[in-house]
Amino acid sequence: MNIPQTILNKIKGENIKPRARWYFVMKHLALWFPGVLVTILGAISFAGVLFAFTHAGWEYREFVYPSLMDFFLAVVPFVWIISFTVFGSLIVKALRTTHKGYRLSVKKILLGSIVASLVLGVCIFYVDDAFKVDSIIRYPLHVREQGVWSSPEEGRLAGLIEEKYEDTLEVRGMDNTLWTIDMSGFGSTTFPFVEKGESIKIVGTSTVEGVFVACAVFPWDIGRFPGSPIKNNKHIRPQIKREQNNNPNCKVLLDNIKKHVSGDAKKSMKENKPMIRNK
């Protein structure tokens, strides 16, 4: 059999034509798509890890979690860490199918993708201040924190400032209850983040129904890793991220909350640092 002639006859006889160039362009783009998608999902996952760590509640950790270990177990964003690992592994498969992807070694693909995901993840973290993706994929941060900060009997309360007076605030709690916040111990309510329309977190005690004596007040979006940059452009956050009541009684109250939370008297003694800053 004369192979060249047989093949040319077949091409002519069956009117076989080369596929158009655009077909291959589209095909290669489609092959790159999973790789790009996986890198973006990896980046979102990394932004999620950053977001979870920086918004973990470092400043009020002692009022919420019994120990440092409990705090870490509660805040480690397992969902994001697992998704980052999964997408990191898929990238090898995704890029190997691309036009020249087979030339890349697993090490190169992984390193390139991880670096791209990390850089992109940091960008997403800085651009998306409230990290809306986290709210969509997991559940909104305020919902997550609702349980923690809707416990006035435990000494924790959060809500929206509806009115601001000389030494009291009217705060609408997350369960829609209106609270009068006694700020008299602070000597003032003039703090940059204590403004009508802002949300705050308060550590204190409720002595009379509907009245909550504030011993420590935090801006709502506090909880960043100590020393991490402040991104909130609504107001300038004070250097002291926690405004505390200078009433000496509050020291006892805050210590009691801490003891109650830790449930360990010995530990509580060891960590019994002065809580009230003199202003």
């Binding site: 093949i7 091409i11 080369p18 160039r21």
Partner: peptide
């Protein structure tokens, strides 16, 4: 073997625009 080679050449021709 000739059939395999013939099919390979037909594929090459169809995909010649994909040749890098």
């Amino acid at each position: 073997a000739e059939d395999v080679v013939q099919n390979s050449f037909i594929k090459m021709y169809r995909n010649i625009n994909d040749f890098d």
